[in-house]
């Protein structure tokens, strides 16, 4: 449709260029890898999982997907009771990190010199094993929701720092030309151009950050940050009391929860992503 309109309003007869601007092949090329990974995740992984369980190659340690779903169904009340505090801590962590992102985005836009420090911070936190954070922090903080949320925030800081670093670079694009021609202040540039330019980076960052936080909460619970409930706690108990079906059920639920959170993040970012497409 757009092509036909272009041809009418641009009457010089640029047929060749218009033909090459047909968006369909490029779109198909883009969609193929985009759907390939989820397809593999949804179809191939459970198939391999079912095959590994049926072949009995790993003994009774591997419980198949159907048995796992049954286990989730039969233990739903226990699993949900434990999933709620994990989700709650994750939401606290995500809220804190969204505030950090908002402040950080402004800081890197106004003072881009801090950007290298952010990249370094991302690497430092990323190389620090998440599992050692809980014992270190538990020296100073009481076990419970606040400790889980703190570890969750630290886990989410890795993608946030990387995202801010990327945003600083992308947001500055063109400022030395168009921005300089109109003697635009940094804040003004960020408001009208920079922020919008950074949306693809923000989108990826937020989508990575939310599942990261969820995993951070589970790891925190696993390593003893939670005093009573949590999916990480259930995993630890199931492992040490040797209940593979419950362990697989918890892991599967955590995976579904992580995917769900990714879906929510994608939905939240959709209007912005659509606007800058």
């Amino acid at each position: 449709m757009a092509i036909a309109r272009t041809a009418v309003a641009d009457p010089a007869g640029r047929r060749a260029r218009l033909a090459s601007s047909d968006p369909k092949p490029a779109r198909t090329r883009l969609l193929a890898p985009r759907f390939a990974v989820p397809l593999i995740a949804v179809c191939v992984v459970p198939a391999i999982w079912a095959f590994a369980a049926d072949s009995n190659a790993f003994g009774k340690a591997v419980v198949g997907p159907i048995a796992t779903v049954r286990e989730i169904h039969s233990h739903w009340s226990v699993l949900w009771l434990n999933a709620r505090p994990t989700l709650y801590a994750t939401l606290i962590g995500v809220a804190v990190l969204l505030v950090v992102t908002a402040i950080g985005a402004l800081v890197v836009a106004l003072a881009p010199r801090v950007t290298p420090a952010l990249a370094a911070l991302s690497i430092v936190i990323g190389t620090l094993p998440l599992i050692v954070l809980t014992p270190i922090l538990s020296l100073f903080m009481p076990r419970g929701r606040s400790l889980v949320a703190t570890v969750c925030v630290l886990a989410g800081l890795v993608p946030v720092a990387a995202m801010l670093s990327g945003m600083a670079r992308v947001g500055e694009r063109g400022r030395d030309e168009l921005g300089a021609v109109y003697a635009t202040s940094r804040l003004r540039w960020w408001r009208y151009v920079g922020f919008w330019q950074t949306i693809p980076v923000l989108d990826i960052g937020v989508r990575a950050m939310i599942p990261y936080c969820f995993v951070g909460s589970i790891v925190a619970e696993w390593s003893g940050a939670s005093s009573s409930f949590g999916l990480g706690e259930v995993m630890t108990n199931a492992l040490f009391s040797y209940e593979p079906p419950l362990l697989w059920a918890t892991i599967s639920l955590a995976a579904v929860g992580s995917l769900g959170l990714l879906g929510i993040a994608t939905l939240i970012m959709y209007p912005l992503r659509r606007r800058v497409r």
């Binding site: 757009a2 010089a12 640029r14 260029r17």
Partner: peptide, 8 residues
Amino acid sequence: PRELSGGM
């Protein structure tokens, strides 16, 4: 802009 040709 994505709806425009290069000349436009």
